[in-house]
C-alpha cells in the first residue's frame, strides 16, 4: 500500500516541480522585462485575478453557468437532431441518399460563419447561442452515428440472421450496442464544439456569459483577469467533457473490465432473484454451489 502511494506520489511531485519551475521562470522573465506584462501578465497577477473573480467579487459564477446552459442546450438540440437523422438514414437507404448532400453542405460550411445570421434569426438572448451550438455540433454526432450504425460485422450479422433474429432485434441487440462507442466519440467532439459555438455567439452579441466577460476584460486590457476567464473556460470544457465520459462509462459498460463485472454481477443477481420468485422457493442446487 505504501509502495503504491509512493509510486504515485513521486511522478506527481516531479510534475509539480516542473510546474513550479515554469512559473518561476515566467515570473523572472517578467521581472527582467523579457515579457511585456501588459500583454502577458505575471502568474501571481493571474492568481490574484482568479481569487478576485471566484472568491472576492464572485463575478464569474453568473457568466459561467449561463455559458454552461447554452453549451448544454446546444449540445442537446444538435445531438438529438444528429442522432435522429442518422438513425433515419441508417434504416432507410433512399432517405440517407437524399439527406446526406445537405449534411455534407452543412459540414463544409464553417458553422461559425452563420453567427450573425443566427443572431438575426433568434435574437440576442440565449436561444441564438443554443442554436449556433446546435448547428456546429450537429455534424459530428450525425456522421459518427451513421457510420457506426451502418458498419457492422458481417459474420455476427449472419449469426443473428441464422438464429432467426428479427430486424428489430438486430437493430437493438446488434447494431446499437456495437455503435455506441463510436457514437460517444462523436458526442465528445460535439460537446466541445457546442461550447465553442456558444462562446463565439457570445463574442458577437450578448450581455452575459464567459465570452462576454472575456471580451470585456481583454478590451479593457485587464489581461490577467481575461486569462483567468480563459482558464475558467478550460474548466468548463473539462467539466462538459468529463460529463460525457462518465455517461460513456455508464452506458458502454462493457469496455472496462471492472465495470463489466459489476454490471454482470448485478444482472445475474436480478436474474436469479426472478427465477426464485417464479419457482416460489429458493433453488437448492444454486445454493449448494
Amino acid at each position: 500500500m505504501k509502495d503504491h502511494l509512493l509510486s504515485r506520489a513521486v511522478p506527481l511531485a516531479k510534475h509539480l516541480l516542473v510546474f513550479a519551475a515554469l512559473i518561476a521562470f515566467w515570473e523572472a522573465a517578467a521581472a527582467i522585462g523579457l515579457i511585456d506584462v501588459i500583454l502577458l501578465p505575471e502568474p501571481h497577477q493571474i492568481a490574484a485575478s482568479i481569487w478576485d473573480l471566484y472568491v472576492e467579487n464572485r463575478t464569474i459564477y453568473r457568466h459561467f453557468f449561463i455559458t454552461l446552459y447554452e453549451a448544454l442546450g446546444g449540445f442537446l438540440v444538435g445531438g438529438a437532431l444528429g442522432l435522429a437523422l442518422a438513425v433515419g438514414s441508417s434504416l432507410n437507404d433512399s432517405f440517407r441518399r437524399y439527406v446526406s448532400p445537405y449534411a455534407i453542405l452543412l459540414n463544409v460550411t464553417p458553422g461559425l460563419a452563420l453567427t450573425p445570421i443566427v443572431i438575426a434569426w433568434f435574437g440576442f438572448g440565449y436561444s441564438s447561442k443554443i442554436a449556433l451550438g446546435a448547428i456546429v455540433c450537429f455534424f459530428p454526432v450525425f456522421v459518427n452515428t451513421l457510420i457506426a450504425l451502418t458498419r457492422s460485422d458481417a459474420e455476427t450479422l449472419e449469426m443473428f440472421r441464422s438464429m432467426g433474429a428479427s430486424e428489430r432485434q438486430i437493430f437493438w441487440k446488434l447494431r446499437v450496442p456495437s455503435a455506441l462507442p463510436m457514437i460517444f466519440a462523436g458526442f465528445k467532439i460535439a460537446i466541445t464544439t457546442a461550447l465553442v459555438g456558444a462562446v463565439v455567439a457570445e463574442f458577437s452579441q450578448a450581455t452575459a456569459g464567459i465570452g462576454v466577460l472575456m471580451q470585456r476584460l481583454s478590451f479593457s486590457l485587464d489581461m490577467s483577469a481575461a486569462i483567468a476567464a480563459l482558464l475558467s473556460m478550460s474548466l468548463l470544457g473539462l467539466i462538459l467533457f468529463t460529463l460525457i465520459e462518465l455517461l460513456d462509462d455508464r452506458i458502454v459498460f462493457w469496455r472496462r473490465a471492472a465495470r463489466m463485472d459489476a454490471v454482470s454481477r448485478k444482472r445475474r443477481a436480478r436474474w436469479t432473484g426472478e427465477r426464485e420468485k417464479q419457482s416460489g422457493k429458493p433453488q437448492g442446487r444454486r445454493r449448494s454451489t
Binding site: L40, V199, A226
Partner: peptide
C-alpha cells in the same frame, strides 16, 4: 498535462486576448 488543458480550452476563445495583444 498542459496539452490536456489546452485541448479542453475552446481555441477560438483566446481570440479577444490575441486581438488585444
Amino acid at each position: 498535462p498542459y496539452v490536456i488543458v489546452l485541448e479542453a480550452t475552446p481555441r477560438i476563445a483566446i481570440g479577444p486576448v490575441i486581438i488585444a495583444a
